[in-house]
Structure formats: structure tokens, C-alpha cells
């Protein structure tokens, strides 16, 4: 039996992002040295929204980078699939920056492991914090998010998708 359930609507996503923006500013005491890096593709849209919210709150536009983690995946050699490699665009040094890594769903943690390896190749950040819209559990690595929109306990065989206006035409989080 197929079931599709909306667990977060547009207003819910927006409220979560507003809260996360405030939490980021609170925890880092402002915008100094703050940098957002969104993980392709969902994380990029969320990072852009966080950037706008932070600009609205503090009046400061903080730098935003785009990271594609495919080159750092740990399963490239174990499958015959060739995942498409997207463009990474981090046109500034991450040396001594406070990097907020942004992704849509935190699941096994393997994407975040790859992302952290990639970030270190762009310099030596002062710190890396992780912001995700959904934490669905089932970690396979010792990784935890600093900012979470919603904890969503899920079974392994369920699919959690974050649909965003920029890509799917509307904002919603769906579990099926």
C-alpha cells in the first residue's frame, strides 16, 4: 500500500528556516567570518534562503558557496553507476571562516562526511557547523547536526523528500 504524507508545508518550512537563521546568529554571535555552503542541490536553495533571512535580520550579506560532493563519495568504486558530477563554486578561501554547511535531509551521514572532506580541501575553516531541514535518523557515521528544522523518525524503507519551489514548484516535505 502506497501512502504519501505531507509532514511539513510551506509555512512550516519557512518558520523552521527563520528559527535556524536566528539560531545560527545566536550561536556564532553575529555574522563575523560566517559563510554558508549549500550541498547540491537541495542544500543550495536552503542556503540561499538562510542567507536572505540572515541579511534581513542583521543587514549583512554573508558569502555563499555551492558544493557538489560527488567526487568525494565513498561508493564510487563499489557500483557501476557513474553519478553525474555537478559544479562546485566556492570562489573564496575558507581559511579561518565559520562554515555553516547546509543540506536538506540528514540520513546516513555519508554525504556530510564527503562534504567535510571537500571543505577541508578549500582551506582550514575555523569551524564547521551543520544545518539541515530534516533529520530522519539512521546514522551510519558519528555525525550530528547543529541546527535542525524537524526531527522526523522514519523507517529505512520510507523515502523522505524535500520539495522546494526553486526546483519542484512548491515547498513541502513528503514521506512515502
Amino acid at each position: 500500500m502506497e501512502q504519501k504524507r505531507i509532514v511539513m508545508d510551506a509555512a512550516g518550512i519557512d518558520r523552521s528556516l527563520t528559527r535556524i537563521a536566528h539560531e545560527i546568529l545566536e550561536k556564532n554571535k553575529g555574522t563575523e567570518e560566517l559563510t554558508l555552503v549549500g550541498i547540491r542541490t537541495g542544500g543550495v536553495f536552503l542556503a540561499e534562503r538562510l542567507r536572505k533571512k540572515i541579511a534581513k535580520i542583521e543587514g549583512v550579506e554573508i558569502p555563499l558557496g555551492i558544493l557538489d560532493i560527488t567526487m568525494y563519495r565513498d561508493d564510487l568504486l563499489s557500483t557501476n553507476r557513474k553519478p553525474k558530477i555537478g559544479k562546485t563554486d566556492i570562489p573564496f578561501s575558507l581559511d579561518n571562516r565559520k562554515v555553516i554547511l547546509v543540506d536538506d535531509v540528514l540520513f546516513t551521514g555519508r554525504t556530510i562526511r564527503a562534504a567535510m572532506d571537500a571543505l577541508i580541501d578549500f582551506g582550514r575553516p575555523k569551524l564547521i557547523q551543520l544545518a539541515v531541514l530534516i533529520d530522519r535518523g539512521h546514522r551510519e557515521l558519528p555525525i550530528r547536526a547543529d541546527f535542525v528544522g524537524k526531527d522526523l523518525p522514519s523507517s529505512l524503507w520510507e523515502a523522505v523528500s524535500v520539495n522546494l519551489t526553486e526546483k519542484s514548484g512548491r515547498d513541502e516535505v513528503v514521506i512515502e
Binding site: 567526487m71 568525494y72 558530477i85 555537478g86 580541501d121
Partner: peptide, 15 residues
């Protein structure tokens, strides 16, 4: 997508 790797300070990815 690979062009960018050659512009980094650390020009190496583990792929």
C-alpha cells in the same frame, strides 16, 4: 564540473 578542481590551491580530489 572538473575545471574547478584545477583552480584550487589543493588540486586533488579522491575520486
Amino acid at each position: 564540473s572538473f575545471i574547478e578542481v584545477s583552480t584550487r590551491d589543493i588540486k586533488k580530489v579522491p575520486t
